[in-house]
Amino acid sequence: MTVAISARGLTRRFGAVTAVDGIDLDVPRAQIYGFLGPNGSGKSTTIRMLCGLLVPSGGTVNVLGHEVPREVETVRRKIGYMTQRFSLWDDLTVTENLDFMCRIYGLDGATRRARMKDRIRSYDLASHANQRAGTLSGGERQRLALAAATLQEPQLLLLDEPTSAVDPQNRRDCWENLFALVAAGTTILVSTHYMDEAERCHRLAILDHGRIAAEGEPKQLARDIDATVIEIECADLTAVRRVLVTVPAIRSVAQLGNRLHVLMHRDSADPERELRASLAGQCADARVERVGATLEDVFVAATQLRRPDVERAA
């Protein structure tokens, strides 16, 4: 068994809205698998179906070798789930929260003490041990939630936007913790809308409107991008923009400081020369250069540009 999660045609409808639309998923063991997508793309709904909180409207799910939702109670003994919103108890202290979760997971006294001691140390919670969870900072809460999710040493961790309320330093620390868990054999499925976090995942699925728009290793996704990435440097970027709207091959334009980052269709043989020619009249000093695609380009190409493509094909 090298696959921790496998889903086929996973679908979830809420009334007339289809939140998740026929997703196929294979999450390898002992890796970090990322869900990257904007709000409302179906990340949370998919995670909730994987841990049995929502029943799929269609499709099949297998988690750690068990059918979900049929064998959901067996699965629940083997997974840890971290909700998007902090969902431990604000009016209990750090220690009390961890102790309660240990008891809920049915750990015996000795194991309970050992695990709590270990988690408080590894997640740097010692100085807040007797502080109520409601008074912790965003980063501290996030560490506590992660500590609680790992108490029963789950084979699979499902993390729904774990770092949405956390500052950059704490986010870095969080990811160090995740890699330590993976090194110990845990499989992690994490949803995010941060590009830098997505970049750290072993594999990635880009979700858009309930479908997987692109899937693979981040590097590979960047290599395989269905677009040419060009950067234009010029003193008068407004003039450049005016010209670019008239070039049909251009799919998206984003400004980065004094440069314009441009995605173009791949069908052009020499896009740089084409662009230089178009710009020659207005801004002769423009520097046009082909660059490597970032994950953000992949994301933009996979999500924002998908529908025009479909229209064009039809």
Binding site: C51, E73, R77, T83, R85, S87, L88, Y105
Partner: peptide
């Protein structure tokens, strides 16, 4: 309302 239940019901309780 506070979301505690979402966490609790994913445990073996």
């Amino acid at each position: 309302e506070r979301g505690n239940l979402e966490l609790l019901i994913t445990t073996p309780v």
